[in-house]
């Protein structure tokens, strides 16, 4: 079959484009060491009883070490606990590990303008770790349609300088 040289060029560029897309993603996850949210492997929770789970019955911030805190968060119709009725307060420049689950339907967790984005599925615990580089207020929105008031499901993360972080609000282990 005879192929015109312009068409050969276009076919070549198309293949290059596919290779470039794959290459950029591989570059991101190897050289740039990007991470995506995961689920806690081997740990499933029963959505009907998760509200009485040891950690999820008292959602909030727990201290693991001076440089590491963990947040247990419940996403439910139509609030984040903590986050919606009162802001989630955490220290800046500190490793924060989120553990999130839902007792009712699927929800989303997104901090707009950041790389933090996870899907919260009943029965699973979505988890990731991050560091908030600066002390400021971030928003949280639900990005999975979860019911009639989905558009009102939002929260706030208040990041404070580590020196101003009030540890009296921590959940005791």
């Amino acid at each position: 079959m005879h192929v015109h040289r312009f068409e050969k060029l276009w076919i070549g560029l198309s293949l290059f484009l596919i290779a470039a897309f794959i290459g950029i993603v591989l570059f991101g996850f190897t050289v740039m060491d990007l991470k995506v949210p995961g689920i806690e492997e081997g740990r499933q929770v029963d959505p009907t009883t998760v509200l009485s789970d040891e950690k999820f019955s008292k959602p909030g911030v727990r201290k693991i070490s001076d440089d590491h805190y963990e947040v247990y968060m419940i996403a439910q119709q139509f609030i984040f606990r903590p986050g919606s009725t009162q802001p989630l307060t955490i220290p800046a420049n500190t490793k924060i590990t989120f553990h999130m689950t839902a007792p009712d339907v699927m929800h989303g967790f997104e901090v707009p303008g950041s790389g933090l984005n996870a899907t919260i599925i009943p029965g699973q615990i979505a988890t990731f770790s991050t560091r908030f580089p600066e002390a400021k207020t971030y928003g949280i929105i639900c990005h999975q349609y979860c019911g009639a008031a989905h558009h009102n499901m939002q929260g706030e993360i208040e990041v404070v300088p580590p020196s101003e972080f009030d540890e009296s609000n921590l959940i005791s282990q």
């Binding site: 993603v25 991470k35 560091r131």
Partner: peptide
């Protein structure tokens, strides 16, 4: 694509570590 990936997706702190 490069803008979307390297600026919008990968460069916005905080991100997942």
């Amino acid at each position: 694509y490069a803008l979307l990936y390297f600026v919008e997706f990968a460069a916005h702190a905080p991100h997942i570590i």
